[in-house]
Simulated assay, not measured.
Amino acid sequence: MNELGERIRKLREQCGLSKAELARRVGVSDVTISYWENGTIKRVGHSRLEPLARALRCSIAYLLGNARDMSGASHAMLLSLPLYPLTTSPETIGVNAVPISHFPMGFIDNALIKKDDYLLTPQHPGHFDFCPQGTLMLARNCSHFDGNGLYLVERNARLMVKRLEQDFDMILDIFGETDSHHPEERTHVDKIVFHAFIPAIWPMKVMAF
């Protein structure tokens, strides 16, 4: 019986991830995900266990079938959002990023949360418009512009949070907090690498528990 593969499949479906998306987050091919799930490959390499557990929002112990963990910590992780530190380096949100904690969903309006959302909190050094240190950002992975709002984007190998608005000519106006009435500049969508949409921001002290 392929218990590990079945666990991976069920968790992937609970998280609303396709095989291709899970593969991207773990750093393997979608064929490898299929082999894990159907038992062709019966063991997950050590270097892949942590990113796989992180993507599936469970502990490594749960993933490997630790019965004591299955009803305890791992279940709590499935009912929480991972919280990642954010710096201006793109590496901080890559597949090797490690959460600093898991935030219980009960402290956030569930109407705001979609599957696979996560939290970011800005770290020193680094300055981000609209969300200084001491704030929590709800983040939702995206690879393209999907309506006006706040986005975590990459430009010149540096992460930044900007408010983006698009006109009828497919030109983006980029706004910073220093002057929210006038765009800092205008650019075509292919000039920016999109990492996440930011649907909500809270002061950390308001969310303390």
Rank of each mutant, 00 (worst) to 15 (best):
Q133Y: 00
F107M: 12
I192T: 12
V206L: 06
H75C: 04
V189G: 03
C131R: 00
I41P: 00
L64C: 07
A196F: 04
R163W: 09
S74C: 02
F175Q: 02
A53R: 03
R163Q: 08
H75Y: 03
M1T: 12
E91S: 10
Q166C: 14
M137P: 00
P90Y: 13
I100P: 08
R24H: 14
T40N: 06
P85N: 09
K114A: 15
K42V: 12
T88H: 07
D117W: 06
E154H: 06
T187M: 08
P125Y: 10
Q166F: 08
L120N: 07
I113A: 10
P99G: 08
K115P: 04
A20L: 15
R25G: 09
P199K: 01
L164K: 00
E177Y: 04
L4P: 13
P82V: 13
N156G: 12
I174T: 01
E21L: 15
L136A: 04
T135M: 00
Q166A: 14
L81K: 01
L112A: 13
M160A: 12
I198W: 02
S34E: 12
V153K: 00
T92V: 15
T135L: 00
A200E: 06
G65R: 02
R163Y: 10
D190M: 02
E154L: 04
V98G: 06
D117I: 02
H102V: 14
T40A: 11
Q166S: 09
T178Q: 11
N96M: 02
F168Y: 01
F103D: 11
R48S: 11
A76S: 10
F107L: 14
V206P: 00
M105I: 14
D169V: 01
V26K: 01
N110T: 14
P122T: 13
I60R: 05
S74T: 15
G5L: 11
P203E: 05
T87K: 09
E21D: 15
H127V: 14
E91L: 13
S29L: 03
Y62E: 12
L4I: 15
E154P: 10
R7W: 06
F103A: 02
L52G: 07
F209I: 13
M1I: 08
S143R: 05
K191N: 08
I41L: 10
G27C: 08
L83Y: 13
Y35M: 12
D169M: 05
E6V: 01
Q166M: 15
D30V: 07
E91T: 07
A97F: 05
P85V: 13
